Each structure stands twice: as C-alpha cells, then as structure tokens.
Computed example of a mutant assay.
Amino acid sequence: MTVTRYETSPVYSKVTEANGFVFTAGVIPTDLSKDVEGQTAEVLAEIDRLLALASTGKAKIVQATVWLSDIRSRDGMNKAWSAWLGGEGAPARACVEAKVIDPRMLVEISVVAVK
C-alpha cells in the first residue's frame, strides 16, 4: 500500500492519502477576528484546497469531525457548513465541544474522503 503525504512538517502532514482514502489533519482558521460562521467558512475553503491536492473534493467526504470551543455556537457553524455543502449529500459527522489551541479559535474540522 502506498501512502502519500501532502504539506508535511516534522510534526504532521496536512493531508495523507492511503488505500483510496484521504485524511486531513484538523484544519483551523487563521483570521481569529471572525465569528464562528466566518471561521468555519474559512476552514471549509481550506479543506477544499487540501482535498484538491489529493484529487478529490467535498462531494466525496464520508466522515467529518468538528470541534467547537463552545457547543452553543453550533448554529453558526452549521449555517456555514450547510452553505458549503450546497444541498449535496452530507457525510457522517461528529460535533463536540473541546478546548482548542487559542481561545479566539472557535472551530477546527477534520475530514475523511474517498478518491
């Protein structure tokens, strides 16, 4: 089995491809001045870019994990998520509250897609 890694660092790869599956690391926003909806939209745009590195896309996502710094912000995250999906089939998804790297960071998302 071949494993292909994209945008690697000494600590992790942003995307790993193996056996027909594509895994992203947790994707975080860079503009921490935005609300949860804005941060989510930014994260999802980055996920689009990362999946494209492995020649796949959001229509082929089979699973997603969403971490929110405050679960009460789920509605704002879901608004950006639903707009991004555009009515396409939604993947299996977990959404949990968790402490993140920076308290201004409101969301982190990781996905698994197929080729």
Rank of each mutant, 00 (worst) to 15 (best):
D75F: 10
F23N: 00
L32I: 03
V11H: 09
A59G: 07
K34Q: 15
T8Q: 15
W84L: 12
G89C: 02
D31E: 13
R72C: 03
G76K: 08
M105D: 04
G87A: 08
S73I: 07
S73L: 14
T24D: 00
G57W: 10
R5M: 15
A45V: 12
T30A: 10
T56Q: 10
V66L: 09
N19C: 05
V27H: 03
V22C: 02
E46P: 01
R5Q: 14
Y12T: 05
E108C: 09
I71P: 05
G20R: 13
V36Y: 01
G20C: 12
A80F: 07
A80Y: 10
A98N: 12
D35K: 04
A52Y: 04
G87I: 04
Q39L: 07
R49Q: 06
C95T: 13
S55F: 11
A92N: 00
G86E: 05
P103W: 14
A41R: 15
S33K: 06
A52K: 14
L68G: 09
M105H: 05
D70F: 08
E42C: 12
K60P: 01
A83G: 01
S82R: 10
V3Q: 09
P91M: 11
V43G: 01
D102V: 03
A113Y: 00
N19W: 05
T56P: 06
S73M: 13
E46D: 11
A92H: 06
D70W: 14
K58I: 06
P103Q: 15
A45Y: 04
K58C: 05
V36D: 03
K34V: 02
W81K: 07
